[in-house]
Protein backbone atom coordinates (compact mmCIF):
# COMPACT_ATOMS: atom_id res chain seq x y z
CA UNK A 1 0.00 0.00 0.00
CA UNK A 2 1.49 3.38 -0.95
CA UNK A 3 0.76 6.05 1.64
CA UNK A 4 1.73 9.68 2.19
CA UNK A 5 3.69 10.50 5.34
CA UNK A 6 3.77 14.09 6.65
CA UNK A 7 7.06 14.99 8.37
CA UNK A 8 7.31 17.60 11.18
CA UNK A 9 9.95 20.34 10.85
CA UNK A 10 12.47 18.89 13.34
CA UNK A 11 12.68 15.60 11.41
CA UNK A 12 13.02 17.12 7.94
CA UNK A 13 16.79 17.07 8.02
CA UNK A 14 16.43 13.27 7.83
CA UNK A 15 14.17 13.54 4.74
CA UNK A 16 16.40 15.99 2.84
CA UNK A 17 14.01 18.79 3.76
CA UNK A 18 10.86 17.11 2.40
CA UNK A 19 7.66 17.85 4.39
CA UNK A 20 5.89 14.89 2.78
CA UNK A 21 7.29 11.56 1.62
CA UNK A 22 5.86 8.34 0.16
CA UNK A 23 6.16 4.98 1.88
CA UNK A 24 4.90 1.45 1.42
CA UNK A 25 3.42 -1.10 3.82
CA UNK A 26 0.35 -3.12 4.74
CA UNK A 27 0.28 -1.60 8.22
CA UNK A 28 1.93 1.26 10.11
CA UNK A 29 4.77 -0.86 11.44
CA UNK A 30 5.72 -1.85 7.87
CA UNK A 31 5.55 1.77 6.78
CA UNK A 32 7.96 2.81 9.57
CA UNK A 33 10.40 0.10 8.49
CA UNK A 34 10.10 1.23 4.88
CA UNK A 35 10.76 4.82 5.92
CA UNK A 36 13.86 3.72 7.82
CA UNK A 37 15.22 2.08 4.64
CA UNK A 38 14.96 5.33 2.70
CA UNK A 39 15.66 7.75 5.53
CA UNK A 40 18.04 6.12 8.02
CA UNK A 41 17.62 7.36 11.60
CA UNK A 42 13.94 8.29 11.27
CA UNK A 43 12.53 5.21 12.99
CA UNK A 44 14.60 5.54 16.17
CA UNK A 45 13.26 9.06 16.63
CA UNK A 46 9.67 7.78 16.50
CA UNK A 47 10.02 4.41 18.23
CA UNK A 48 11.72 3.13 21.35
CA UNK A 49 14.49 0.51 20.89
CA UNK A 50 11.86 -2.26 21.43
CA UNK A 51 9.76 -0.87 18.56
CA UNK A 52 6.94 0.70 20.61
CA UNK A 53 5.87 4.24 19.77
CA UNK A 54 7.72 6.82 21.90
CA UNK A 55 5.46 8.35 24.51
CA UNK A 56 5.81 11.88 23.23
CA UNK A 57 5.07 10.95 19.62
CA UNK A 58 1.58 10.82 18.15
CA UNK A 59 0.85 9.27 14.77
CA UNK A 60 -2.33 10.37 13.08
CA UNK A 61 -3.87 8.27 10.31
CA UNK A 62 -6.04 10.65 8.28
CA UNK A 63 -6.37 12.83 11.42
CA UNK A 64 -7.17 9.96 13.79
CA UNK A 65 -4.74 9.04 16.59
CA UNK A 66 -3.51 5.48 15.90
CA UNK A 67 -3.54 4.75 19.65
CA UNK A 68 -7.34 4.78 19.31
CA UNK A 69 -7.09 2.32 16.43
CA UNK A 70 -4.84 -0.77 16.31
CA UNK A 71 -1.74 1.25 17.09
CA UNK A 72 1.24 0.14 14.95
CA UNK A 73 -0.76 -2.86 13.65
CA UNK A 74 -3.39 -0.55 12.09
CA UNK A 75 -3.82 -1.61 8.45
CA UNK A 76 -3.58 0.90 5.64
CA UNK A 77 -5.42 1.70 2.44
CA UNK A 78 -3.94 3.13 -0.76
CA UNK A 79 -3.38 6.92 -0.43
CA UNK A 80 -3.87 7.02 3.33
CA UNK A 81 -2.17 9.94 5.03
CA UNK A 82 0.01 9.46 8.09
CA UNK A 83 1.21 12.48 10.16
CA UNK A 84 4.04 12.38 12.70
CA UNK A 85 3.39 14.92 15.46
CA UNK A 86 5.26 15.44 18.75
CA UNK A 87 2.75 15.39 21.62
CA UNK A 88 3.92 18.84 22.57
CA UNK A 89 4.84 22.06 20.91
CA UNK A 90 8.59 22.45 21.02
CA UNK A 91 9.38 26.02 21.86
CA UNK A 92 7.84 28.34 24.27
CA UNK A 93 5.39 28.81 25.64
Amino acid sequence: MAVKVRIPTPLRKLTNGADEVKADGANIKDVLNDLEKNFPGLKERICEPDGALRRFVNLYLNDEDIRFKDNLATTLKENDELSIIPAIAGGVF
Binding site: P8, P10, L11, K13, R45, R54, R55, F56, V57, P86, A87, I88, A89, G90, G91, V92, F93
Partner: peptide
Protein backbone atom coordinates in the same frame (compact mmCIF):
# COMPACT_ATOMS: atom_id res chain seq x y z
CA UNK B 1 17.80 22.30 26.43
CA UNK B 2 16.28 19.26 24.71
CA UNK B 3 18.98 16.88 23.46
CA UNK B 4 17.31 16.61 20.08
CA UNK B 5 15.30 18.77 17.69
CA UNK B 6 12.44 16.23 17.88
CA UNK B 7 11.58 16.04 21.57
CA UNK B 8 8.75 15.88 24.10
CA UNK B 9 9.63 18.71 26.45
CA UNK B 10 6.78 21.18 26.20
CA UNK B 11 7.90 24.79 26.45
CA UNK B 12 11.52 24.13 25.55
CA UNK B 13 13.47 24.95 22.42
CA UNK B 14 16.33 23.09 20.78
CA UNK B 15 18.33 26.17 19.80
CA UNK B 16 20.48 24.68 17.03
CA UNK B 17 17.38 23.78 15.01
CA UNK B 18 15.12 26.73 15.91
Amino acid sequence: EPDNAFHGLEGLKHMASS
